[in-house]
Design a protein around this nucleic acid. Structure first.
Lengths: 215, 215
DNA sequence: GACGGAAATGAACTCTGGTTCAGTTAAGCA
DNA sequence: TGCTTAACTGAACCAGAGTTCATTTCCGTC
């Protein structure tokens, strides 16, 4: 009879895959994608470098997988808040606060996901990640507009602005070496969130129009 | 008598330096810093690769120089608008609009300055660039607050948010391959700017406070 | 015009880090 | 136990891109 993969083996294979992914993820969380070199990943996972290539066709693919897993976890947290059954304003505030707070807490990881220089494959993955944020925000903005709480005109643009404002405002502080938020992260997050909320619930279109003319 | 550098030679040296910088700048404007490989720069400048190292100690230094020159030009445009003698609101609107419009027009270059993955040296340079933007914005915000037009509490944070929101909102469209703004760039810029303005002149602190509680 | 020191050249070198593959070990099946 | 196939190993390989340096060309001085 021909060779057939037994359950024990399948299990072990799956196990190895996980071990490798975990090793890679930990390295990324510690030192960004730059630190996730194949040799290092192998060492940390306790396998030979060649073995990695039995589980992933290339470094790029491995890193993408890591990126997806990590970002999916983040997205889920946000999505579940966004889906709660209450006014959009509160949900938006909480989503933004959560987003920012988690980024501050997991600095290096956030930096890797949002800002670290990475090569093309990951840039693409990152764009997807950003787009998903944008969609969550845009959804909340639409809800808020429907409720009459927000005065946003183009929800997509506003969502993109928010998705950009938060990480960038955090980035100096987010950079691996920075310590400028040791104690005051909370306060900073609150201010950033306030900025974004003000943008969507503050000015009326008329007022902006007046401003434009008088300027 | 010892050898002495004559004027003709000095001039030629300075000339070469410029030629090299220009070649590098053009390559960056066409294909980002990734395209500015030493061999290419040399070819485009019409000199040998080794020659580059008589003018710049390393690729990093050459690229930094290019970055500084290009970004300085951008900054000057903004600074001169910011310094005009009129209400802050109008100046802010114009600074932001100019910033965004120029980015849209010089897409690839803007992408290189703002978003392209680059290595450490340039990341640092980019941070400086961002910080300078932040300072311009913050200055305008303070003016506006003093005038009573803006309701910003923490001008630094708000400035950082703005500095992040604009490029990011443009970035999808800014990415080298994207064409999604061919005709409607103007409109998009306007919407992004409106978002930022709304954030600083819209909501009163009280209203935000209420919001926070009722959420 | 010839000598000495800058400047320029570009092929060769180096360094980094991903990828491969011939050889070895472990697992399934009779 | 013996044969076969899958899985694993890790040192060697390779590619890309920045940098060097022995050699050549150019320029200023005597």
């Amino acid at each position: 009879m021909a060779y057939r993969r037994t359950d024990t083996v399948s299990a072990r294979l799956a196990d190895n895959r996980r071990t490798i992914l975990n090793a890679a993820r930990e390295l990324v969380a510690e030192g960004g994608f730059a630190a996730a070199q194949m040799t290092e990943v192998a060492r940390k996972a306790g396998v030979a470098t060649g073995t990695l290539y039995r589980y992933f066709p290339s470094k790029e693919e491995l890193c993408r997988q890591v990126f997806r897993e990590v970002s999916a976890r983040e997205m889920n947290v946000l999505v579940s808040i966004a889906a709660e059954d209450r006014p959009a304003a509160g949900r938006l505030r909480d989503v933004l606060t959560t987003f920012a707070t988690r980024a501050v807490r997991g600095r290096r990881l956030a930096y890797a996901l949002l800002a670290e220089p990475v090569d093309d494959g990951l840039t693409e993955e990152r764009a997807r990640f950003r787009r998903m944020h944008g969609e969550i925000f845009a959804g909340l903005l639409e809800d808020g507009v429907a409720e009459g709480t927000f005065t946003v005109i183009n929800t997509k643009v506003a969502a993109a602005c928010i998705a950009g404002a938060i990480p960038t405002a955090l980035i100096g502080p987010l950079a691996p070496e920075s310590h400028e938020m040791e104690n005051d992260g909370e306060r900073m997050v609150e201010e950033i969130v306030n900025f974004c909320l003000a943008a969507v619930q503050g000015a009326s279109p008329q007022r902006l129009a007046e401003q434009r003319i008088s300027a």
